[in-house]
Design a protein around this nucleic acid. Structure first.
Lengths: 229, 229
DNA sequence: TCATGGAAGTGACTAAATCACTTAGTGATT
DNA sequence: AATCACTAAGTGATTTAGTCACTTCCATGA
């Protein structure tokens, strides 16, 4: 890096990550209280808070008022979506679909060749619940694509797709809810699922490409210029 | 929702982002001093610092001791690499190459069809400097792939490749420096460049796949079990 | 012209409190 | 016996006030 020495809070954030690793803490576990952390590392509470805020921004920890500091899912992630992203535009939505169109067909092909029983089961479950409305912030309609990437066996690909789908997730769901045919989506998901189950990589790739192309076209024809509200 | 109201610092982080947008500040510009921000939003300095630390973690701002708070490149980014990632293993490096093998050939094909003069020029510059050693944290050898993605015209694809290459970047460079044939890499880059210049998407896709396959094989045969140091 | 030095402005951190929320335990009520 | 309301302890959230360290810049002097 350009800076030789890091600030206290930056150093402290690394130390806390190291502490989490050395104690083998996983998502959901409780971290030491901020007061104890302050004592342990011989700094004051505001400094600890800065370090924790930093870690919170990338999902490594989660601070719950009155309860404690908990380990989040961010520790094992390599790539993530920026929580502060630019406003949505028509172009940005289409850009996203085009990016997915480049990336996801290859993932589908890989998933068809690398599938296993557990992955197939999760994929089937995701396809089955795709028509249910979003609850608790989880969007079943998008979950199928994440599980498809997970079935490829490559964690980085899963994270990449997850991050891309997290980009402007609320607006994406809103738009698909208004302009997309979810029954057709579901039918296409089932076709992809069948191809993956049969181990037919070429078909999975082709079907995924068709699926995303259909979505892109429905977005391109739809006029949502004033749909920002 | 799970939590109805956000904490002060979380709300404040959003407000600061909004302030940056409303004043049309870009990377390199100076943000208001933390004391002034505290006055403007009627909170105290530690709270401001927490919000800034949060934004710093995702690259939205950069705090320089004694100088000021500067806008960083993170504001316009949608997907980024996690600064606190797990330790490197042999499997994780190969996983990364496999992920790139799925994603980048399609990007090369898109770049060949969407290329323009400016993009080609940047791509040529990246290829020309690829043999130079890393300086100031910039790794010319990896830059070619980022510029290739940029030439596709899709910003999200560029960010995705950039984030993937940022994952374990130092270790990656180290490994390639030790086990990879950089002259061969360079020759293959030039081939890809020629295909993109000719607008031959199929060739660009094939050459990129070959290029990454070669890298993967050289990593699989290399024994870097004890190269963690 | 150029180096020196110091003042002003900035972020970094400390210190001691108080406030607000969650949780679990306790006891009374049903 | 089961349930509910209350209480107390532990936790994060925020404030207030102040000191320290770094950077920048400009005036000063050689």
């Amino acid at each position: 890096m350009t800076q030789g020495r890091a600030s206290f809070s930056e150093q402290l954030a690394d130390d806390i990550v190291q502490l989490i690793r050395s104690e083998s803490l996983g998502p959901g576990d409780v971290l030491e209280s901020s007061r104890d952390l302050a004592k342990r590392f011989a700094v004051t509470t505001p400094t600890v808070r800065e370090a924790l805020r930093r870690l919170e921004a990338t999902g490594v920890v989660e601070l719950r008022h009155g309860s404690g500091t908990y380990i989040g899912p961010g520790l094992e992630r390599s790539v993530l979506a920026n929580p502060h992203r630019p406003h949505i535009t028509r172009a940005s939505v289409i850009e996203l679909v085009q990016a997915r169109l480049v990336i996801e067909p290859g993932i589908a092909a890989l998933a068809a060749s690398a599938r296993d029983a557990a992955g197939l089961q999760r994929l089937e479950a995701a396809a089955a619940t795709a028509l249910q409305p979003p609850v608790h912030g989880v969007r079943p309609a998008l979950n199928f694509h994440v599980e498809l990437a997970a079935a490829s066996g490559n964690g980085l690909l899963r994270e990449t797709v997850e991050a891309l789908l997290h980009v402007r997730a609320p607006e994406q769901t809103e738009i698909r809810f208004r302009y997309d045919d979810r029954r057709r989506d579901h039918a296409e998901h089932l076709e992809i699922l069948a191809a993956v189950r049969d181990g037919d990589g070429a078909a999975a790739e082709r079907l995924t490409r068709t699926h995303l192309t259909t979505i892109r076209e429905s977005l391109e024809t739809a006029d949502f210029g004033g749909a920002a509200s």
